[in-house]
Design a protein around this nucleic acid. Structure first.
Length: 513
RNA sequence: GCCUCAUUAGCUCAGUUGGUUAGAGCGGCGGACUGUUAAUCCGUAGGUCCAAGGUUCAAGUCCUUGAUGAGGCGCCA
């Protein structure tokens, strides 16, 4: 009895699937499993029946559809037999339309592709009116596409950028996981205003049109949601340190917010940052980790995103054709990435860098906007660019900066010979075109030294009692760094503007989508 | 926040010293086309020259202010 019921039920569902009608009224074989185009292009053409779904990239000669589903950069060619398909249907095969095709996967009869799908059944899921559609089958500028960021995923360039972005994110998790790191989620909302990494966005539920005040006219934060001032995080580092001092090796990978009025090609108000923190480690362990990680993830993308990188390399070459020779990249994209993976980064101290810059041609000829006068000043981006792009022509790690220009938590160095002033165990990794991609340091683990430093730099010690506690109880040498994820994506994709490597960029005056 | 440059058709751009009716390519639309590859061929429509003031007989073009965008600098990742 129960057996018969099961058979009936199965028959019913089989029937229902086979004759289930699509929105346009055509009967569609929806019980068949859809195959992604990336997989189809790897398949040997065995005359098997397949179901493919995607968006129309081109419809040539009333016969050939270039179809893309985002699974890879390449399109698959669908061949339509006009005699077998209703003209009312082929009229709706427009650039951008979402369609499904059931047919046989065969060896391509034409040149230019290995396989193609001969359409036996065709369904329009979503029409796309070319008179209104903001995208066109032609080159459009990145600035224009930024205005239609909700649709730009559909272009070849942005498809490649976001596939590479995913691969990089995945590779980062894999790298750390394989090395025994724990992924730690640090708070996005923070009550401490003491991290000193720039202007913060306030988080409040107080009514802006009628802010409660104390008797002295100050904002009465006791009436606010957290009963104290709160902000969006500018860094998860301090909290990551707390985790590292028990779990040994941790990393964060989350959104970060800076309310700086920065208008450049490498700053965002909302960006993603990776911050590893390692216990029982010094600055050299920190540098080794950062260099290994960068080389690992770039290599991962070279291995897994070859087609997308080639597409991005061609895009860059095309873009640079209109630029004067000296503004063009010295190497094509893929070659540049291989170079970074295969060569050790150049490591030198701030003091050594100052000597090189002081004796450099542009400094002697007065070409620097900010001439190098001596030890102690922060390096400007023109100086960093000279070191990376002219002098060494490879990624550079600068270490042991003057204590006065770096954050309070960085470990104070022992006085060195031929070093004019106190330095800290800090390191910055500089990349061509991008500038600073990593900033890190060995952390000050000595309670007394840290406390004195906080007092000198006016860091409120009461607010950071929890940070100081780690130095009071079982403190140990430890280190870490912050990697700007979008800057990494910029470097790997060759995109010039950081606003083009994040789906919906936030920057001064812009929070669209 | 500071400096420089830009804004002309759906998109990318040209437009001379201020001078009659502002042009091109691509895209769109209509047509042709069963082995195309940014398909091709024929035809066709499409403009508040960013906005507001000003100079001038006359402004897309010159001046002022503003808006938006881009690049550089600062802050940083």
């Amino acid at each position: 009895m129960s057996f018969n019921f099961a058979v009936l039920l199965r028959l019913f569902f089989q029937y229902w699937f086979i004759f289930h009608q699509c929105p346009d009224g055509r009967i569609f074989c929806s019980s068949m499993k859809r195959t992604k185009i990336a997989e189809l292009l790897r398949t040997e053409p065995t005359n098997t029946e397949v179901l493919v779904k995607g968006w129309v990239k081109a419809f040539r000669n009333n016969q050939f559809i270039a179809l893309n589903d985002g699974s890879c950069a390449a399109n698959i060619q669908v061949v339509v037999d006009a005699e077998r398909v209703d003209a009312a249907l082929t009229d709706r095969i427009k650039f951008g339309a979402a369609i499904g095709v059931r047919g046989k996967l065969i060896e391509s009869q034409g040149k230019g592709q290995k396989v193609e799908v001969v359409a036996e059944e065709l369904t329009i899921f979503g029409d796309c009116n070319p008179e209104e559609y903001p995208l066109q089958p032609k080159r459009q500028t990145l600035e224009y596409l930024r205005e239609v960021a909700h649709l730009r995923f559909r272009t070849n360039t942005f498809g490649a950028v976001f596939r590479v972005r995913h691969a990089l994110a995945f590779a980062i998790h894999k790298f750390f996981n394989d090395r025994g790191f724990y992924y730690m989620h640090t708070p996005v909302i923070t009550a401490s205003d003491a991290e000193g990494a720039g202007e913060m966005f306030h988080v409040t539920t107080l009514p802006l049109e009628n802010i409660p005040r104390t008797e002295d006219g100050e904002v009465d934060f006791s009436k606010d949601f957290f009963e104290r001032p709160a902000n969006l995080t500018v860094s998860g580092q301090l909290e990551a340190e707390l985790g590292a001092l028990a779990l040994s090796d941790v990393y964060t990978f989350g959104p970060t917010f800076r309310a700086e009025n920065s208008n450049t090609t490498r700053h965002l108000a909302e960006f993603w940052m990776i911050e590893p923190e390692i216990a029982f480690a010094d600055l050299h362990d920190d540098m080794d980790l950062a260099e290994d990680m960068l080389q690992y993830v770039i290599n991962y993308v070279l291995e897994h995103c070859a087609d997308d990188l080639q597409l991005l390399e061609n895009r860059l070459l095309e873009e640079e054709k209109s630029k004067p020779q000296h503004e063009r990249s010295p190497m094509p994209l893929v070659e540049r990435l291989r170079f970074v993976v295969e060569n050790k980064f150049e490591r030198l101290t701030y003091t050594e860098a100052i000597e090189i810059l002081k004796n450099s041609k542009p400094n002697k000829k007065g070409k620097f906007q900010f001439p190098i006068e001596g030890w102690g000043a922060d390096l400007q981006s023109e100086h960093e660019r000279y070191l990376v792009e002219k002098h060494f022509q490879k990624p550079v790690i600068l270490t042991n900066y003057p204590a006065a220009i770096k954050a309070f938590y960085m470990r104070l160095d022992d006085p060195g010979e031929n070093v004019p002033g106190p330095t800290v165990s800090a390191m910055d990794i500089l990349f061509p075109g991008i500038g600073e991609i990593v900033g890190g340091s060995q952390r000050e683990e000595r309670y007394d030294v840290l406390l004195q430093k906080m007092r000198e730099m006016n860091i409120p010690e009461e607010e950071l009692y929890w940070y100081l506690d780690t130095r009071k109880f079982g403190s140990c040498p430890h280190a870490g760094f912050g990697l700007g994820f979008e800057r990494l994506v910029q470097f790997v994709t060759g995109m010039g503007n950081i606003r083009d490597v994040i789906a919906f960029p936030r920057y001064p005056g812009n929070a669209e989508f």
